[in-house]
Simulated assay, not measured.
Amino acid sequence: MKIIKTLTAASLLTLTLAGAQTAYAHGDKEHATKMNQLSAAIAGDHRSDKNKARDMYRHPKETLEFFGFHSAMTVVEITPGGGWYTEILAPALKGKGKLYGAQYPDTGEDNYFSKSRKNLEKKLASNAVFSEVELTDFVPRKESTLAPAGTADLVLTFRNLHNWKDAGVEQVFKDAYKALKAGGVLGVVEHRLPEGSDPEKSRGYVSQSKTIAQAKAAGFKLAAKSEINANPKDLAQYKVWTLPPALANGEKDKEKYLAIGESDRMTLKFVKPKK
């Protein structure tokens, strides 16, 4: 006698879930591993408590995921500065991807460029998590090779545009375009100047519409905008360094500026078109 087994809705659901788990195990597991490496980097003990305290304003995981980051990419970080994002990018890419730090060169003189480069080199030598980072030379307002042409998947700049002024921004976007592969991404985070505000009164803030126009002039297409790093409490009625973490006014109105938090920021994703 044949026994006919009927699949109930519950048993069908069980089979579906099992199939999904199998697909995950053989397909999405690699993607999950790449993203877990980012999470591990953000939570790493090599990051100071002071730097981790900034995560609530800078949203590194959400920001990098918005730009399409994963740990097998070739990434360029333009002027890493003190290395806040480098502390995350270096271990997140280590062993799978590649990180170039396009930093000001050591000119051999006693100037900001040389000191900045030396300080970054000292930081990179301080911990094995940075052992695979490669530094290149970036000179503002001059053509610079951020990485070998056409090799980068992602070029990033965080809160730097205001330092370079218009001519410098235009040049760095050209440099980024040259470094990127076709289809590669330029990710920009910058202090956002409210439309119609006085740039002189709100020093350190940059027009979002102008930034988009400058990137388009360099050949990029705007792929997406995000409010991940927006802060509606920041009205930009002061120099950006008035806010934390700089707190340029010292103890004067300190609690007021701490309550505002870090600056309101644009987060823009541009793409180098495929030919």
Results as ranks from 00 to 15, higher is better:
residue 20 A to L: 15
residue 30 E to M: 08
residue 31 H to F: 13
residue 35 M to H: 15
residue 35 M to Y: 15
residue 36 N to H: 14
residue 37 Q to F: 14
residue 38 L to R: 05
residue 39 S to G: 14
residue 40 A to K: 15
residue 47 R to I: 00
residue 56 M to P: 03
residue 57 Y to E: 01
residue 59 H to T: 12
residue 59 H to P: 14
residue 65 E to R: 10
residue 65 E to D: 09
residue 67 F to Y: 11
residue 70 H to P: 00
residue 71 S to N: 08
residue 72 A to E: 14
residue 73 M to N: 13
residue 75 V to N: 13
residue 79 T to P: 07
residue 82 G to C: 05
residue 85 Y to H: 05
residue 88 I to S: 00
residue 89 L to D: 09
residue 91 P to E: 04
residue 92 A to P: 01
residue 96 K to R: 12
residue 96 K to C: 08
residue 97 G to H: 11
residue 98 K to A: 06
residue 107 T to R: 14
residue 109 E to S: 10
residue 110 D to K: 08
residue 113 F to L: 13
residue 113 F to D: 15
residue 115 K to P: 08
residue 118 K to S: 08
residue 120 L to P: 00
residue 123 K to W: 02
residue 124 L to C: 00
residue 127 N to V: 01
residue 127 N to D: 15
residue 130 F to M: 09
residue 132 E to R: 12
residue 133 V to K: 02
residue 134 E to C: 06
residue 136 T to A: 09
residue 139 V to P: 05
residue 143 E to V: 12
residue 144 S to G: 12
residue 145 T to W: 04
residue 146 L to E: 03
residue 147 A to H: 08
residue 151 T to M: 01
residue 152 A to V: 02
residue 153 D to E: 12
residue 154 L to V: 04
residue 155 V to I: 06
residue 158 F to Q: 07
residue 159 R to S: 06
residue 160 N to I: 03
residue 162 H to D: 12
residue 163 N to H: 07
residue 164 W to C: 09
residue 164 W to D: 10
